[in-house]
């Protein structure tokens, strides 16, 4: 309760605080402030979800902590959704987006992407009695996806015209739609499917086929070459010394592949 009032009072005090936007290089302003602000997901386990204390945890959060540690600054996590994560970055409210971002040419016009930091394999999953070995086999079926995720964009490209792709707001929508039988199949990450099977539901999402190997990247604002170089340096270093591998084993249950 005390914490709540503190936050509330601080929040109200901010109403009166002078406001300004730093225009110096991102790296300079971060070390000057001593804080790295990172947008992380809270609706996408195992990359980011909340624990019973409502604090985010997961692969992306550990990755953010790793980068902050190597920069020698404190970490401030900003939980975001798929609808607001990019505006948070482009308006300078956060320094980085580490939110299992996949890359495509349209997106690269808006923000820059670092080297990959996490593996992500997405595919089509469904109950055992449905057989589908390639996109063409999906004809006439309904497939649930999380709207705008890489598997959505890729599946839309390769699926025949009569596949009914249903696009849900977040992971939970996609999963609920599958579990309640609203869709025949789902396209999602292999780790997500594994997490559902672990709960032993009546409808099990078993692997059908791989759509794409689409690793995750850290998102940065454009025109920040120094910051980009630094982030890439940290990713390379953590791969070399095994710290990134430890994160992968902790959250994905598998070691990092040879090449991301």
């Amino acid at each position: 309760m005390k914490q709540f009032f503190k936050t509330a009072i601080a929040a109200v005090a901010m109403l009166a605080a002078p406001l300004g936007v730093a225009s110096a290089g991102a790296l300079d302003s971060i070390s000057e402030a001593g804080v790295l602000k990172v947008a992380v997901p809270q609706d996408f386990p195992p990359f980011g979800s909340v624990g019973t204390d409502m604090q985010p945890k997961g692969y992306d959060i550990d990755m953010a902590a790793l980068i902050a540690e190597d920069l020698g600054v404190k970490l401030e996590l900003v939980p975001v959704t798929s609808a607001n994560r990019i505006p948070y970055l482009t308006t300078g409210k956060v320094d980085l987006v580490i939110s299992s971002l996949g890359k495509n040419p349209d997106r690269e016009k808006v923000i820059d992407f670092s080297a990959p930091y996490a593996p992500f394999y997405n595919g089509v999953f469904g109950p055992a009695d449905i057989s589908a070995e390639k996109a063409d086999d999906l004809a006439g079926m309904s497939v649930g996806v999380t709207r705008g995720a890489i598997e959505d964009l890729e599946l839309t490209k390769i699926a025949p015209a009569d596949v009914d792709i249903k696009r849900y707001e977040d992971n939970n929508g996609t999963i609920s739609a599958f579990l309640s039988g609203q869709v025949d199949l789902i396209a999602t990450g292999n780790v997500t499917a594994a997490a559902i099977i672990e709960r032993n539901p009546p409808r099990k999402p078993e692997p059908k086929f791989l759509i794409k190997n689409s690793p995750c990247y850290v998102g940065l604002n454009k025109e920040e070459p120094e910051f980009m170089a630094k982030v890439n340096e940290i990713i390379a270093a953590s791969m070399a010394d095994g710290r990134l591998n430890a994160i992968a084993e902790k959250w994905l249950g598998i070691p990092l592949p040879e090449k991301l």
Binding site: Q42, P45, S49, V50, M54, N84, N172, S176
Partner: peptide, 23 residues
């Protein structure tokens, strides 16, 4: 208000659902 980062009732519900898959 969750669009601008407030974790109020509905948002907290969404967050917990995505951690528990118990909508």
């Amino acid at each position: 208000a969750s669009i601008i980062g407030f974790v109020e009732l509905t948002k907290a519900g969404t967050m917990i659902t995505n951690a528990t898959y118990a909508p």
